[in-house]
Structures are given as structure tokens and as C-alpha cells.
Design a protein around this nucleic acid. Sequence first.
DNA 1: CCTCTTATTGAAAATTATTTTCAATTATAG
DNA 2: CTATAATTGAAAATAATTTTCAATAAGAGG
Lengths: 141, 141
Amino acid sequence: MNHKWLDILSKNGYRLTDSRKAVVEIISLSTHALTPIEIYEKAKAKRDDIGLVSVYRTLEKLEELKLIQRVHQPASCQAFMVASQEHQHLLLCSTCGEIQFFDGDDLETLIATISKKTGFKISEHWLQLFGQCANCQKTQS
Amino acid sequence: MNHKWLDILSKNGYRLTDSRKAVVEIISLSTHALTPIEIYEKAKAKRDDIGLVSVYRTLEKLEELKLIQRVHQPASCQAFMVASQEHQHLLLCSTCGEIQFFDGDDLETLIATISKKTGFKISEHWLQLFGQCANCQKTQS
DNA sequence: CCTCTTATTGAAAATTATTTTCAATTATAG
DNA sequence: CTATAATTGAAAATAATTTTCAATAAGAGG
């Protein structure tokens, strides 16, 4: 997982520094969306002189390479997580923050209908489901 | 439209000041999502001594009363627009920024499937379509 | 291994967005 | 008309992100 990302960075002319590797490892292994500050805190454990700026700069490159994506939530849109290559949607646990991907949406019909009705040429769609994951349901009851 | 909002603000114990009325009028009549700064610029035309802070404070109250909603877009999540009372989704023109509502999504089946597959209890969903509106398609070709 | 080039670094400053503080003003209940 | 308390705008404070810059270090080519 991790090595693949480093290869991609390298192949795109980006150097593999310790700071960058720390950020890659943290975000590539997380099942939660993480903010730059959260990544920075975690990265300091691996490499205590890392700067927050390097986190921002690495996120910028990972996003550009479509390895990560920004996650939009009601409370904030500052967090990032792994991006899936195929077209997939997010299922977010509002309690613990865990995020899963899902696919199998069949929005073709809906999109065709809306397109005809409004005259829009639709090029992209966002679908996110919010709820409570199995674990959190157990914990609360 | 506008008067309804003022009534609601009033009934909720908020006073109707000129600054507040200016913000309400601007956002309630817009078909585009507007940022606090954009609203502030427009409001200055009506009331040149308005402060940006009052825009923020009014938006806060309108959002709390669910008269407006924050609009999430790839480039930024700082803009607001009218909220619809019923459950509806957004159709956004990436060229001119116009936003329309649409309904008639039938996601029940999908949600039930995902719910069964993952164990999530799903409480909310976001669906947004991005594309180019009829007008902008014409203009470009 | 070297060495050179240049991307990358972290710190600090700058910028941008938002929130808080505060004394003055004003909406509105009575 | 008056009293009260919500609201105001300005300025300061906070938070998030970006830019600047001199020092460092990755990695290509010998």
C-alpha cells in the first residue's frame, strides 16, 4: 500500500524524504479521515522535528496524484483520507469517524431523468451516507 | 420569501435590524451559493456601514433556523444558499455556479442494501450532481 | 562512493477566514 | 416614551493555510 504510494511519488519526480514517508504511512493506513494537525501530531511520534508545513505540502502532492481525497462532513471539510481508484462513495460513522467505501450505486436512471428535466450535462456526482457503524451501535446500547 | 424569513427570525426572538434585513434579502433571492465576503460586498450597496461580522452572525442564525445551508463544493465549502424544507438534493453548474434543487431520488433500496452489508444504521445522506447548465452549454459552443 | 543540482526542509512571517471582545446603538416590549 | 437587552461595527484574537527563505539532503550522473 505504502510502498506503492512511495513509488508513485518517486515516479512523479518527488523525492522520498523521511517527513514525507511518515505522512504517507500515517494517512495510507488510516480508516478515519485525518486533519493536517492530526497527521502532524502522529507524525511527530515518528520524526519529532517534522514541520506542519511539510504535512500540508505532502497532502497537496498526494491529492494531486489522487492518492488521497478531502472528506466533506457537516462539521468540517479539513480532513483527508485514502482515495479509491474506482468510482466509489463514502459511508461515514458520525460517532467514531470510521469511513468505509461502498459501490453499487445505480444512479444512471436518476441522472438521466434529472438531466432531461433540467438540461444539465452532468459530469460528476457525490454520494455520501452518514450513520452509525455496527460497533458504535453496540457500545451505546 | 423574504418576509417569511423575517417573521421566523422575529418569532425566534431575533431583532430585525437593517443589517440583518440586507443579508436576508441577498441570500434569500440568490440562485448561487454566496460566501460571507460576497454577501458582505453586496450588502454594502444597500447599507454601506454594515460590518462583515454582522454577515457572519446573521448567517449563523439563518443556518440554525435551517433557512440556509452550507454548500460543499470541490473548491471550497464556505458558501451558503437557501435550504429547502423537504429533503432535496443539489445540482450545481461548475461553470456559472448556479444551483438547482432536485428530488425524486430513490435511494431506499441502495441504502437498505448498504445497511445490511455493513451493519451501519444510516441516518442521513448527501447527494450532489455536478455539471454544466443549459445556458453555459450554449455559451461555450 | 563523490559531487553537483535542485527539491525539500523547518521556522518564521504573511495571509485569509472566522470568532471574540467591547462600548455604543437601537429594536421592541410594555 | 422609556427601559432593557439584543445587536451593532471596529478592533483584537484565534485558527487555518500559504509564502518566504536560508539550510539541508535526495538522488542523478559520474
